[in-house]
Amino acid sequence: MERINLTQANTNSALLAKVTRESGQDISACYQCGKCTAGCLMAGAGDGGPRLVMRLLQFGLLDQVLSGKAIWLCAACGICTVRCPREIDVAKVMESLRRMARQTGQRPAEPAVAAFEDLFLTCVSRHGRMHELGVMVAHNIKTGRPFKDADLGQKLFFRGKLRLLPSRVRKVAAVKQLFARTGGGAA
C-alpha cells in the first residue's frame, strides 16, 4: 500500500484551484471507489493510477502529482471518465495536470513520453504534417536507443509503409502561427 505523507498537505493551495479551473472538474467529488484505476492500462506501470492522483489532489499534494509518472503514462483513452460514478471527467483532470507539469518547466518523470510529444509537435510546426519515420528516428536518438525497432522499420519499408521524406503543407506558415501561445484558458 502506498504511503502518503500528509505533513505537506495543503488544501488551500492556489495551484489546486487552478486544477479545478483548468479542468472544470470538482476534485472533492471523488469518493475513491477506484473504478478508474481498475480499468486503467497504466495503473500498474508507474507510481499509481488515477484514483491515487485524485486522492493526492484532495490532500493538496499537487507537487507530488506533477513530479510523478501517472500523468505522463496516461494514454488519454478516457475509460476512467466513462466509468466514474461521480461523473468526474478524470481524463480531463489528467490532461490539465500534464499541461500544468509542462508549465512548471521541471524534468518530466517519463522523459521518453515527453520527448515523443515534443518531437511530434516540432515536426508538425515545421512541415504542417507528422512525418512518422522522422519522428521515430529522432525519438530513438533523443532517448539514447538508436536501434530500437530498426528491424520493424526495415519490414515497414519493404511493405511500402514508410515515407522517407516528410509531406509538407503548402501554406506551412499558416500552420506555424497556430503554435504561438495564447496564455491558456480552458475550453
Partner: peptide
C-alpha cells in the same frame, strides 16, 4: 494539415 493528435491536446488546448 496534421490534426495535432494527442501531443497537441496534452500540451495546449488552443493549439
Amino acid at each position: 494539415n496534421c490534426c495535432g493528435s494527442s501531443p497537441a491536446h496534452n500540451n495546449d488546448g488552443f493549439l
